[in-house]
Design a protein around this nucleic acid. Structure first.
Length: 618
DNA sequence: AGTCCGCGCGCG
DNA sequence: AAAGCGCGCGCGGACT
């Protein structure tokens, strides 16, 4: 292939056409098409048709709809689909690239190509499809093959790569990105701008073919298909956005600010008392310590005779009794976190025109396959009802929330597999209580106390992913307020693996794997002993992510059933917005999609979904 | 002024 | 033998 590539690059377009005819029987059609592409991409052959009138655009569209796949890219005057404009839409076939000037052609002319018709090959399709979705008032680009997302799947990266990087690696083409940020709103576009625009669309088809070949080699095509089907659903959710009640939010901010200010004063006073620094002329504590600085806090505590390794919550908590400022500091930290991370600044993410929050959903946001979210992060809002209730349904609508119950434990039970754990889930029993019974040596029928269940919860969550006795001891203390010393934790750990021998065997079988796979086939490469716990966690966390993603896909692909749409998702939870009168129907729809999505992977253990409809989230 | 990193902490 | 995992964000502090 390398030699073909070089050969192609050496020939002019006409010359390659000649080779194509002459050696038609020798090279496959696909290979020759690729040679053509390399030839004129390398020689910067134009074959680029600039279109700035409706008639020409219609002719191009007629040709384009009969293609099986086209490269697509857009140039815009900015990054905001609501506030900014699309200037160019570039659509590439193997032989031609049309650069269509949207200042002179209405978007509707392109609809037959955009929705249905050929596969649209796009780099970071969420951007282009999201823009087109807004501008065309609801026409979704479909079907999509996203070269950025696909590359990420192949490389199990936690981050995406640019089209420039992909072109360099796979096609040995240097894309000039200089013009990317040029003025696309200018009345007349320069020839170089048009060439740049065309070139970007041009490399997409050959990229797709190479990525697909690699996907087949890696036996990962199902994951690639899942991710590509997901793109429209993510666009849909992101463009839907979610409504924030700014009045409610402001009240929370104000009270957090007041609390933080008060606690800071108390902290200063407390230190003044204990350091004989006394008060200043105005009766204020003459202490100038920045309580937001871990370094300064650590130093101060050391001066007060409390030596600690760090100032994180768990460390401070276990030294609570050592000095009165520590308890105050813990309270202050809570309030300060609310003020900084969930303060007034957070509201800047409300869009000026839509008045909703359109967060940036990152489709493959983690190495395991989970999504992430930023600007703002909708996935780490405080769980307190007061905060989540700030997210309210639009007028006459409800928010319906569905979440998978103990999804990772269910997946672990199947993947290990562990017969006892599977049985407990099949019988619809509460796994934490079941675990408590085993650890305590009680018969399963006998009730366990709340604190016993709490202990078992820590055990289930921790030990399943390879936590050790020491870790379990502090984990139980920090997260579940359960005290157990290390010896006790070790004993519990032994009992746990006696009860769940399937989990024990699974742990042993995973210790030397170089690659993990989710049930669907999503992979992650792991090296070294250090990655042992990742080997356990990745297929579970990743399979849960795959199942949730399929649920989102099903929502999109069956959207005609109910006039509703997703507004956010948090790893094991999907929230949709629906008109009040459709609440019942929408609830069934969400539940069904979530069951079916996860059910494709979790087949040997029941999928359980907790679902509620309210006017607000939380 | 802008950039980078570690710490700490919100969520699953 | 022993080992929880995955994110994004705000801050302080050090650097340019």
């Amino acid at each position: 292939m390398v030699c073909l590539r070089e050969k192609a690059a050496q020939h002019s377009f006409v010359r390659v056409q000649f080779i194509y005819r002459k050696q038609h029987d020798f090279y496959s059609h696909r290979v020759l098409i690729r040679m053509l592409l390399f030839a004129h991409v390398h020689h910067n052959q134009p074959l680029i048709q600039y279109i700035a009138d409706i008639e020409q655009a219609s002719i191009a569209v007629k040709k384009l709809v009969s293609e099986s796949e086209v490269g697509l890219d857009i140039e815009t005057t900015g990054l905001d689909p609501i506030l900014d404009k699309i200037r160019l839409v570039q659509i590439a076939t193997p032989l031609n690239t049309y650069v269509i000037d949207m200042y002179h052609v209405p978007i509707s002319v392109l609809n037959p190509v955009l929705t249905g018709g050929p596969i649209k090959v796009i780099h970071n399709a969420k951007f282009d499809a999201g823009f087109l979705y807004v501008v065309s008032e609801g026409v979704m680009v479909e079907p999509i093959f996203d070269t950025m997302i696909t590359d990420q799947v192949l490389h199990h990266r936690g981050y995406a790569r640019s089209l420039k990087d992909l072109s360099k690696e796979y096609l040995d083409i240097d894309l000039d990105k200089e013009k990317q940020t040029s003025d696309w709103g200018a009345e007349h576009l320069s020839e170089t701008q048009i060439q740049y625009a065309g070139q970007d669309a041009h490399v997409l088809l050959p990229l797709k073919h190479i990525l697909e070949e690699k996907a087949v080699e890696l036996q990962i095509i199902e994951v690639v298909n899942l991710e590509n089907r997901l793109v429209p659903a993510i666009c849909w959710m992101e463009r839907s956005g979610v409504n924030l009640d700014r009045n409610l939010w402001n009240k929370l901010v104000k009270s957090a600010e007041a609390k933080a200010t008060r606690l800071k004063e108390e902290l200063n006073l407390s230190v003044a008392e204990h350091t004989s620094l006394g008060l200043d002329l105005f009766g204020n504590a003459a202490v100038s310590i920045n309580w937001d600085s871990p370094a300064q806090v650590k130093k101060l505590l050391s001066d007060l005779g409390v030596e600690i390794e760090n100032t994180r919550h768990s460390t401070l908590e276990s030294n609570r009794g050592a000095h009165p400022v520590i308890a105050l500091l813990l309270d202050y930290r809570g309030a300060a976190k609310k003020v900084s991370t969930y303060g007034t600044d957070w509201e800047k993410h409300v869009h000026p025109t839509s008045h909703r929050i359109h967060a940036n959903w990152v489709q493959i946001g983690s190495a395991t396959g989970r999504m992430s979210c930023k600007n703002p992060n909708m996935q780490n809002l405080p769980r307190e009802a007061a905060y989540r209730n700030c997210f309210r349904a639009a007028p006459d609508c409800v928010l319906i929330k569905g979440d998978y119950e103990q999804i990772e434990l269910r997946l672990a039970a199947q993947i290990a597999p562990d017969a006892r754990m599977k049985k407990a889930f099949y019988e619809g029993r509460d796994l934490h209580s079941v675990t408590a019974s085993y650890l305590l040596g009680k018969p399963e029928t006998e009730a366990v106390t709340d604190s016993q269940r709490q202990m078992a919860k820590a055990v289930n969550f921790g030990l399943i992913f390879g936590m050790g006795a020491r870790g379990l001891s502090s984990y139980a203390q920090n997260n579940f307020r359960v005290r157990m010393d290390e010896t006790e934790a070790a004993k519990i750990r032994r009992r746990y693996f006696e009860a769940y021998s399937g989990i024990k065997n699974w742990h042993e079988s995973q210790s030397r794997k170089l690659e993990t796979r989710t049930i669907l086939g999503r992979h992650r490469i792991l090296e070294g002993e250090r990655d042992y716990t990742n080997r356990l966690n990745s297929p579970i966390q990743g399979s849960a992510a795959d199942g949730l993603k399929l649920a989102l896909i099903k929502l999109w692909e069956t959207r005609h059933r109910v006039n509703a749409y997703p507004v956010l998702t948090v790893h094991d939870e999907i929230v949709i917005e629906a008109p009040k009168e459709l609440a019942g129907k929408a609830t069934e729809w969400l539940k069904g999609c979530m069951e079916d999505g996860m059910g494709e992977f979790l087949q040997e253990v029941p999928v359980a979904i907790d679902i509620t409809a309210k006017e607000s989230w939380g």
